[in-house]
Amino acid sequence: MASVHDEVRQFVIDNFLFGQADGGFSDDISFIESGIIDSTGVLELIGFLEERYQFQLAPTELVPENLDSVNNLARLIARKRKASEQAQQKEEYGVCR
């Protein structure tokens, strides 16, 4: 099974580099500074995250610290998943009681 890092990287390569990742790019390279994603491309990235990982992003979360590299995205996804699991557990606990 592909890791989150691999999935995100593949999406960026397919969607923004059209498969042309000449020599690849490191997990911490800035998408914006390297020109991989332009300022409208980030909307596609958000759409991918919300559809693939089934979470919503608040406006305050739409910052480069969350979105501007493979590593940042992987951290964001992990954090959102954890938050989602915790919320689910709380809900289940509430139901039992």
Binding site: E33, S39, V42, L43, L62, V63, P64, L67
Partner: peptide, 11 residues
């Protein structure tokens, strides 16, 4: 209007 400000800043 939909673009995050941080990204416009980056541009």
């Amino acid at each position: 209007g939909a673009q995050p400000e941080a990204y416009l800043n980056a541009f």
